[in-house]
Structure formats: C-alpha cells, structure tokens
C-alpha cells in the first residue's frame, strides 16, 4: 500500500451569503494514495468543487487540516501557497481557461515562467507536453483556432508541463462532445497509468468516472 499523498482530516467549510452561513463541507476526512485516480461525484451543490479547491490550495478550510505530500497547506501564507501551487498542482478546468492572446505552446509554457528554467528549456518542456497530448502540429495555434477537445488537451499539457505532484480536474469533459470527452478521459487515464500521475477529478459524467480507479460520492457536504 503506497503512502497517502493527500490526507484530509475533519475539514469543515462554509460560505457566507449576506447574513446566512451556508455549510458546504462537513467533517470531511479522506486519504488519497500517490498514483491514485479519484473521481468525486455528486449532485450540484454537494461541495465537490469546494473540496477540489481546498485540495488544490486555492481555498482554505474553516477547520480541519489538509496535508499534501506531508505539507499542511492551510498553514502556508498567501505567497508561499502560490509558490506551492506552482510546484505541486496541475489545474485542468472545465472551460479550459487558456489565455486567448497566447498560442498553444505559449499557454503551456506559462507555468514554467514560475520555475528557474531557461527560455530554451521552457520551450522544450512545453513542446514535449504538447507532444504527449498529441498536439505537436498545433503549437502555434491560438485557442480560438482550436476545437474544444484540442483546447482541453492544451489545458492538460499546461497542467502536466511542470510535472506536478497532483493533477486536479474540475469537470474536464463538462463542455465537450462525446468523442472529445472520450479522448480527454483516455489521455487522463494514460497519464495516470503510464506516468503514475495522481489525479483528483470532479465530474457529473458517469462515463468519465468509469475511467477513475476510485469513485467517491458527496452529498450535502459529506462523503458517502
């Protein structure tokens, strides 16, 4: 049994809307092993994206601890947390979130600007990542010149280019047609199997969840 990469211990999270406090996550405890491919499922408002954001370090729990690779991320200051994200987290967004004025290869290169790599090394890494997602022939294309499936593959290349500890994917197939969705899921599955990438994915799509090794369901803020 590999050591757990993610250890979530009794995490609570609520949001304030005007004067109301709305609990989103209640007493969540979860461990995820390195090399795992976990799918989080659940109805809208069940708190799965909130949990993903906490794991990714772009949100903080109200109570409880989240340790990733042995680091208690709740204790990091804002700029340390940003640095931690750039090293350990690869983001895959539902709407790809590519920068429209940058080409595919420039988008993929973006996270590498936060590393000490030289310009040449950055370009090589970015080209390699685009190669892995099968888009070597689309490097100089702008996002608007790509299909949705291609855009998401550029998004995945951007997520893996820094070789992060963990990939977090929020509805990665949510905006794609069936064929593109299958391609993207095949790619994620391959990254998990061939490259031993740990992936945490939020999805509504049962077909997408099938590709994961483990599926956990959330309902009204609790894991079931």
């Amino acid at each position: 049994m590999p050591a757990p990469l993610i250890e979530i211990n009794e995490v609570y999270k609520s949001y304030r809307r005007e004067h109301l406090e709305i609990p989103v996550l209640e007493k969540i405890s979860l461990t995820v092993a390195a090399g795992e491919f976990l799918a989080l499922m659940g109805p809208s408002g069940s708190g799965k994206t909130t949990l993903l954001n906490l794991i990714a370090g772009i949100d903080r729990p109200d109570r409880g601890t989240i340790r990733i690779g042995g680091i208690e991320i709740g204790s990091l200051g804002e700029s340390d947390l940003a640095r931690w994200r750039s090293r350990h987290i690869g983001f895959i967004f539902q709407l790809y979130n590519l920068i429209p004025v940058l080409t595919a290869v420039e988008n993929v290169e973006l996270p590498l600007l936060l590393t000490p790599l030289s310009k040449k090394q950055r370009r090589e890494h970015a080209e390699l990542a685009l190669n892995v997602v099968g888009l070597s022939d689309r490097m100089r294309h702008y996002p608007r010149q790509l299909s949705g499936g291609q855009e998401q593959r550029v998004g995945i290349a951007r997520a893996i280019v820094t070789d992060p500890t963990l990939l977090v994917a929020d509805e990665p197939t949510g905006d794609l047609d069936k064929t593109s969705a299958r391609d993207v899921m095949d790619l994620l599955s391959r990254l998990n199997k061939d490259f031993s990438k740990t992936i945490v994915m939020v999805t509504h799509d049962p077909r997408a969840a099938e590709q994961a090794r483990t599926v956990r369901h959330l309902d009204k803020g609790t894991l079931i």
Partner: peptide
C-alpha cells in the same frame, strides 16, 4: 477576470 483567476491559480503572485 477568469484569465486573472487562472494566472493566480497557476501560482503567479
């Protein structure tokens, strides 16, 4: 706005 959020999520200070 989304672009800014993305850059910040990627780790840009």
């Amino acid at each position: 706005t989304t672009e800014i959020g993305t850059l910040r999520a990627l780790g840009f200070p």
